[in-house]
């Protein structure tokens, strides 16, 4: 979900490449389950995983219901914020970059993209306090921290400081 530059890029050199150009399938949405499924690959999700709306709304969150492996899951769908897109990445086979002597580079290719994510809890009703919706706060924080400050804002700030003094 994050922009594809690895955080350590500046310090330790490039550790992975992500090729987003071939994103062919638009999934619309992706599911985030409260379990680990030890398989890498495709599955007939839409044939077996059938979310339905419960009609219940908790704190403005519309609760959905689905079953997986006999367990009842309750979920909520979150749209990715403007300016962000979700990708399903696949590691390229023989992913080591031969030009890099360290052999440390992994290459990923986008296989699909999505605009919303439904996260599922086992047994607990989704709420704004769940960690996944709260993750989106980081985008706002990061934006505020990294956005370049305009000369106008600087001028305003020094004006305010002068007032305080």
């Amino acid at each position: 979900m994050e922009h594809a530059t690895p955080p350590a890029a500046a310090a330790g050199g490039v550790t992975a490449t992500v090729d987003l150009s071939p994103a062919a399938t638009d999934l619309g949405g992706a599911h985030h389950l409260p379990c680990g499924i030890k398989q890498n690959g495709g599955a007939p999700v839409s044939d077996y995983f059938k979310p339905r709306s419960t009609g219940v709304e908790v704190e403005g969150v519309r609760v959905e219901e689905a079953f997986f492996r006999g367990r009842k899951l309750q979920g909520a769908t979150l749209a990715l914020p403007d300016g962000y897109r979700g990708y399903v990445l696949e590691k390229k086979s023989g992913g080591k970059d031969k030009q890099n002597s360290d052999g440390e580079v992994s290459n990923f290719v986008a296989r699909a993209e999505f605009q919303n994510i439904t996260y599922w809890n086992h047994d607990t009703t989704p709420s704004a306090e769940d960690s996944l919706p709260r993750c989106f706060h980081w985008l706002t924080v990061a934006n505020a921290m990294h956005k370049p400050v305009t000369s106008e804002e600087l001028a305003n700030m020094s004006a305010m400081q002068n007032q305080d003094n």
Binding site: P6, P7, A8, G12, T15, A16, V18, S106, F108, S131, R134, C135, H137, W138, V141
Partner: peptide
């Protein structure tokens, strides 16, 4: 705490 509460981990290496 901000990251702990959100289970946000710093990923240093994609492999």
């Amino acid at each position: 705490k901000f990251f702990q509460a959100r289970k946000l981990e710093l990923v240093r290496k994609f492999q």
